[in-house]
Amino acid sequence: MQRRQFIHLSSLAAAVAVLPGCAAVANLTTGPLIERHLPKDYSGVVAVRKDARSTLVTHAGGLALREEKQPVTKDTRFLIGSITKWISAVTVLRLADMGTLDLDAPIARHLPELPAANGAVTLRQLMSNRSGIPNGLLEALKKDRAAVEKLEIGPVEAALRFGTGTPTSSPGERWDYSYTNWILVAAVVERARKEPFTETVEELVLAPSGVRDTSFAATGYEDEVGMAVAYNEAGLRKTSPVPPMIVASGTMYSTASDLVKIADTVYFTKLLSDKARKELSTVVVPSEDYALGGKVKTIATKEGARTLAWEAGAIGAYKSLLAYDPADGRVVVLLNNTDMPQSEQARIAVALFQDM
C-alpha cells in the first residue's frame, strides 16, 4: 500500500519556540516509569514530563500501519478527537482578547439568519455545551448517515442547516455534548474573521506554538505518510469521516510533543491574557468537570492535589488524552490507535502522575 506524502495545511513559517526555563524535547523512546504502567501490547505514544524545566520522555510502541508493519514512532501523528474542542476554545479566547468576539454576546450578532431563540445563545454557552439548541447534526445522521457524511459543507452552511431546531431548554440550563454546538462556534468565528475556521486556528494558536505536525485532517487522511491508522479489536480499520463542518470539534491530528508545545504556549506564554486563561480553567458544569472546550480535573498525588487541564478525545478507534498541570507544566500524553477504552487511558494517566 502506497501512502501519500503528507502536506501541512498551513503556509505559515513559524520557528519552533523554546520556552524560557524549559528544556528542549529530547529524542527518547522509552522510560521505566512509562513502561511500568502500560499494557505490553500498547499501540501508540505515551509522553511524560515532571515539570516545564524537565525533558519530555516519550515511549512509542505497536504499529502505525499494520498492513505494512510500519511501527509507531514518537513523531507519528494521531487524530486527537475532542482535544480539538480545547484548541478551538483557545482560539475563541484569543479572539475575545483581541476584541473580535464577546463570549457573552448573542451569536445573532454574527449569525442573524438563525431563529431568534437560537441566536440569543452565547459563545460561552456553546463552548460549555449548554446552549439548549438540539443536536440537528445527530438527528440528520440518524435519518441518513451516508448522505450526511458525504456533505462537503463548511461550518456556516452547516450552522444554518443543523442549528435551527427549536431549543429544548433555556440557554445555560442543561448539558448536551453536541456536535452542533461546535458547528455554531466555528460558524461564528468564520463570520467574525471572514476566513475559514482552520486558517484562524493555524494563525492564532498553532503558529505561535511552533508546531509542525498538527493541523486539520481531510478526506483520505489515513493514507498520509506519518499518520497512524486506527484499528478495532478485530484488527480491522476503524477510521471516521472528517467532514469540514465539524472542524471545531474533532478533526485535528497531532503528535505527543506538539500537544505539549501547545499546552506550554497556552499556560506559560502571553498567548492568552490572564483573564482568558482563567476562563479556560474555570469549571462551568461541575457534574461533568467541564470548563470551556474541555475538562478540569483534580487528582490526588503523593505531593498533594493537582488540578489538571484534562483533554480527552475519541474518533474512530483513535483515543487520546492530554493531562496537563498549569501550575508547573507536569504532563502526561497518551495517543492510541487500537480503540483503547478512555477509562483505561485515564487510569494510566493518573497512575503516571502519581508515580512521577
Rank of each mutant, 00 (worst) to 15 (best):
residue 2 Q to K: 15
residue 9 L to Y: 07
residue 10 S to G: 04
residue 16 V to G: 06
residue 27 N to D: 15
residue 34 I to E: 08
residue 37 H to L: 07
residue 38 L to G: 12
residue 45 V to M: 09
residue 48 V to E: 02
residue 48 V to D: 02
residue 49 R to L: 08
residue 49 R to P: 04
residue 51 D to Q: 14
residue 55 T to Y: 08
residue 56 L to H: 07
residue 58 T to N: 06
residue 68 E to T: 15
residue 68 E to P: 03
residue 69 K to H: 15
residue 70 Q to D: 12
residue 71 P to I: 00
residue 75 D to Y: 02
residue 76 T to P: 04
residue 77 R to S: 06
residue 79 L to V: 05
residue 83 I to T: 04
residue 84 T to D: 01
residue 91 T to C: 10
residue 92 V to H: 02
residue 93 L to Y: 04
residue 96 A to G: 00
residue 96 A to K: 06
residue 101 L to T: 01
residue 110 H to N: 11
residue 111 L to R: 02
residue 114 L to V: 06
residue 119 G to E: 08
residue 125 Q to G: 02
residue 127 M to S: 01
residue 128 S to A: 11
residue 144 D to L: 09
residue 156 V to T: 06
residue 160 L to R: 04
residue 163 G to N: 03
residue 169 S to H: 14
residue 170 S to C: 00
residue 194 K to N: 03
residue 201 V to M: 09
residue 203 E to F: 00
residue 208 P to K: 04
residue 213 D to R: 02
residue 217 A to N: 05
residue 218 A to C: 01
residue 224 E to G: 00
residue 225 V to Y: 05
residue 229 V to K: 15
residue 232 N to L: 14
residue 233 E to L: 15
residue 234 A to G: 08
residue 241 P to C: 03
residue 242 V to N: 06
residue 246 I to S: 12
residue 247 V to Y: 08
residue 250 G to N: 04
residue 259 L to Q: 12
residue 259 L to M: 11
residue 261 K to L: 14
residue 263 A to Y: 06
residue 264 D to K: 12
residue 268 F to T: 01
residue 278 K to S: 13
residue 281 S to M: 15
residue 283 V to F: 10
residue 290 Y to T: 10
residue 291 A to P: 09
residue 308 L to D: 13
residue 308 L to K: 14
residue 311 E to T: 00
residue 312 A to F: 03
residue 312 A to C: 00
residue 315 I to M: 05
residue 316 G to M: 04
residue 317 A to G: 08
residue 320 S to V: 00
residue 321 L to C: 02
residue 323 A to N: 10
residue 323 A to V: 09
residue 325 D to Y: 12
residue 330 R to I: 11
residue 336 N to S: 05
residue 346 A to D: 15
residue 348 I to H: 13
residue 349 A to L: 11
residue 350 V to D: 12
residue 355 D to C: 10
